[in-house]
Structure formats: C-alpha cells, structure tokens
C-alpha cells in the first residue's frame, strides 16, 4: 500500500500545466498517460495496475517544481521512466504475480467456462439496453463478424464516422468501460 496523499493542489495544477497550456487538453493528456500506465502494468502482469499507476503519478507530481525547472522532453517519457523504476521495486518485493494456477484462466474451448460466460452474457444483454442507441449500435458494428470481415468492417466504420481507427477504438474502449462496470454490478447481484 502506498501513501494515500502526497501532493497538494498547487502541485497537481502545475503538473497539468506541464502537460499542456490548455487545461482541457492537459486533462485529456493526463487521462491518456494514466490509461497507458494501467495498460503497461497489466501487460507486465501486475494485479494492482491501477494503484501502481496512481503511485507513478504521485511520484511525478511531487517532483513537479524540479521537473519544470530542469526536465526537457516529452512528459510521457518521464512517466514511463518512473513506471519502469516502480516495476523494478515491485519485482524485488515480489509484487508481480503470474502463476497460471492461481488464476482460473479463461479457455473458450473448455465447456466449464461456458457457465461463467453465460452469466456475463446475460448481464451484457441487460447492460447493452442501458447504453444510448448510438453506443450500442457502435459496439454491435465493432464486434460483429469474423476476423477478416471484422477488420474490413472496422475500417469502414471508422471511415463512415469520419474518424481515425484509433479514435474509433478509444470510443469503443470508453463504452466497454461503462459496460464492464454495469456487468460487474449485475454479476454481483446474480451471484
């Protein structure tokens, strides 16, 4: 467990300013960096990816005055550097976990997994109805079809919407987040 609060309001505001002069754009950049950190820690097999990401942000923010004075370069590179250091610390503390035996890895070929998936599927059907029609239509179009058909479909979808494929992916990612929260609540209710 890390210290819960290590920086003050001024430092946080300075950190946002470091990310960009426009506060809204800086806020978006901040969210992007945090999402990237969570992905990085998850890819590296960390159970507590969210907590580790927040710790990176804490460590960077408390040093913000020094960074503004001396650091040159893309802030994202500095965040990544701190994340690498934290990963090393955690390896030492054996916080990294990746034993298959501890996790009921999902295997679509195993019939036993189908019952767990059935509950998620039932909850998904409920949660899809809570989305706005434009959101559920986007999700259906994005995930429908088999591999090649899907790839072609996504390219077409991005071009139809007038956005880059990555922008489309981010939109889908946000909707997935909403669905994940809703499904968690639903699964907990049903259990």
């Amino acid at each position: 467990m890390f210290r819960e609060l290590v920086f003050n309001q001024t430092q946080f505001d300075l950190m946002l300013k470091w990310l960009g002069d426009d506060r809204d754009a800086a806020g978006t950049k901040y969210e992007e960096i945090r999402e990237n950190l969570v992905r990085l820690f998850t890819w590296r097999g960390c159970y507590d990816a969210e907590e580790l990401s927040d710790e990176v942000i804490n460590r960077v923010t408390v040093k913000i005055e020094d960074l503004l004075a001396y650091y040159e370069g893309d802030p994202a590179r500095y965040f990544y550097g701190v994340a690498k250091k934290l990963l090393l610390e955690n390896q030492r503390k054996q916080r990294l976990q990746a034993p298959l035996s501890d996790v009921a890895a999902y295997d679509p070929a195993t019939p036993d997994e189908n019952s767990a998936l059935d509950l998620i599927y039932e909850c998904l059907a409920v949660c899809m109805k809570e989305l706005k029609p434009s959101e559920s239509n986007l999700i259906v179009s994005y995930y429908a079809g088999e591999k090649q058909e899907k790839i072609r479909g996504r390219k077409g979808l991005a071009s139809q919407s007038g956005v880059a494929p990555n922008t489309l992916r981010v939109r889908v990612y946000r909707i997935r987040e909403t669905l994940e929260k809703c499904i968690k609540r639903c699964v907990n209710r049903e259990k």
Partner: peptide
C-alpha cells in the same frame, strides 16, 4: 491472462 483484469476483459470480449 495472468491478471484478473485481463481475464475479465477477455471474457467480456467473448461475450460481446
């Protein structure tokens, strides 16, 4: 699939 987050994410993708 070593973390619960990824496991849940893959299960959601399968359901989707």
């Amino acid at each position: 699939l070593a973390t619960p987050q990824k496991l849940q994410s893959v299960q959601l993708t399968a359901a989707l």
